[in-house]
Design a protein around this nucleic acid. Structure first.
Lengths: 304, 304
DNA sequence: TACCACCATATATCTTATATATGGCTCCTA
DNA sequence: TAGGAGCCATATATAAGATATATGGTGGTA
């Protein structure tokens, strides 16, 4: 019993006439007679009563008709759902986010905007470091990630640059430079630099060290933080200074002041990572919303 | 998109391997690959991700899988329902009943018994006179009737004798024979006979007149009752006497006493009527329950 | 009684699913 | 790193089965 047979059944029931039903179904009468007859035979029960003037439902036919209609309806819905998924209007998107990314206003803005535009799409967010994000992406635990380039597996992860976030210096409260708005890195050469393990964000890590080098100094490496945003408490504890993405100044942790960096200043690049070779419309859709949001929505609140 | 495609989709999703799924489906791998590929093409979206080691569901596939399972489930249920209907275990039975028939204990007993045996069957009852019952039967407003033979349309209604119900004389309270247990019809020759119109039950009507004739008298026809059970109030009103099926004495209408009839006594025959040429299992099932009940359950309560 | 409407049957045709054979890719392993 | 195994894709052939065409049969109707 195939979908076809349900359609035949329902159409004949609706017209009460095999000939007209065949017409409606775009076929001839004999095959329709034959098919419904075979259907009745396999079901072991008559659905229609043959009369001189057309056919009418038997009790069994009347009892089964709504069930057949339901099945046809669900099939139609299935196909519509599939088309919705194909157009990126429905579905589920699992998003991986690099550390501190949710603090950047344009990212939550983009996410809010996307869920307004595509209300049929549910989103789930996961925050982690770049290598873990790549791994989750490639093992299909996430569908798209916002990460700090470079990625370890460039062959399989396609990276789309998203924005270059300025960075700030974080100083413990009461530091001699507390009131200096903009600081040159060379003036911090002697302060221990609190930084995260390189493998958690090699791009940002290297950018920081390169900026020091360009400033003509080599930083004294202080205690290692467990993650990018994890440097802040260590700075607050007076263990050293730190260079952080601008968005982190929103953390409002007491005990730390943020300061602009005079050139040369490192940047914290953010990029979109997707599996290479895949272009589902849902992902493309989300990417374009993200890019648009980053263009029009990059202004940060002023420093205190 | 046919049922087949839903089954292919679900089976591949369950095995994660087109080759094994084909085996499970009793077919070869290439046609299955081809079918699922065509399905994806018509849906406009990939359901599976081809990998070196088998296939895995895409996001869309994962989202659609439960829907496909539901459709397969409903199809299975549909077929099971049809088989249930075919075996007479499910469905709906519309029963037509001749006047006063529900007062015969064996009839409600059979109905109760049937609904215990076949709990999947719903019943609806309709009470009327024999010609109207035949008409309802032939126009498919009822499926089976219990009527008083003969039927007007013997060519189309198949009649199965069910039982011969004894009859009683109904006398108005205070009648000279009130204390006589058994009365010979000849002693009532002068009393007006209250009777229903012949067309409402010609068999019973004729049996009554024949019994009078056999008793050697001709009844004086009194007022006509609107239906068989309708004679009782007229008797109670003192307009005459009446011959009624034994079961009617259960009406407990004040003003009337019931008395056995000495031979020759008429009988009120009851029969089952079904459409000639139809033998649905549900109807056959009900018929056998009825017949069994009438055999084992004919004792009537004593007369008061 | 002849006609009309409609379903059933018989045979032919054609679409389409499936089978067979083979190629190609990826991962695993010696 | 070369060879093999596992698995999916493609191409062609075959078979099944749905549909079309032609025609017969039946009951209702003018």
């Amino acid at each position: 019993m195939e979908i076809r047979h349900f359609r035949y059944f329902v159409t004949i029931a609706e017209t009460g006439n095999i000939t007209h039903a065949a017409e409606k179904l775009g076929m001839e009468q004999p095959p329709l007679s034959q098919q419904i007859r075979r259907l009745e035979h396999t079901l072991g029960i008559a659905l229609f009563r043959r009369q001189a003037r057309g056919v009418s439902l038997t009790e069994a036919g009347r009892a089964l008709l709504p069930h057949a209609r339901l099945i046809l309806d669900l099939r139609r819905q299935f196909i519509e759902d599939a088309h919705g998924l194909a157009r990126g209007e429905k579905g589920h998107l699992r998003i991986g986010l690099a550390g501190a990314v949710p603090l950047l206003p344009s990212i939550p803005f983009a996410i809010r905007q996307f869920s307004t535009i595509a209300p049929g799409v549910t989103l789930s967010l996961e925050e982690s470091n770049t290598p873990a994000l790549c791994e989750a992406l490639l093992s299909y635990r996430t569908d798209i990630t916002i990460l700090r380039p470079p990625v370890p597996d460039q062959a399989n992860v396609h990276v789309i640059p998203l924005l270059d976030e300025p960075t700030l210096i974080a100083l413990p409260k009461g530091h001699p430079f507390t009131d200096v708005a903009e600081i040159h890195l060379s003036r911090l050469a002697t302060e221990p630099l609190i930084i995260f393990p390189r493998e958690l964000g090699p791009g940002f890590f290297d950018a920081i060290l390169a900026a020091y080098r360009d400033a003509g100094v080599t930083p004294a490496l202080g205690q290692q933080a467990p993650q990018i945003a994890g440097t802040i408490p260590l700075v607050a504890a007076g263990l050293g200074v730190s260079i952080v993405p601008q968005s982190l100044h929103q953390l409002h942790t007491g005990g730390v002041t943020f300061h602009k960096i005079a050139r040369p200043a490192p940047h914290a690049a953010l990029a979109i990572g997707v599996r290479r070779g895949e272009q589902p419309p849902l992902i493309n859709h989300f990417i374009s919303v993200l890019q648009q949001a980053c263009k029009t929505h990059t202004e940060l609140p002023d420093l205190p």
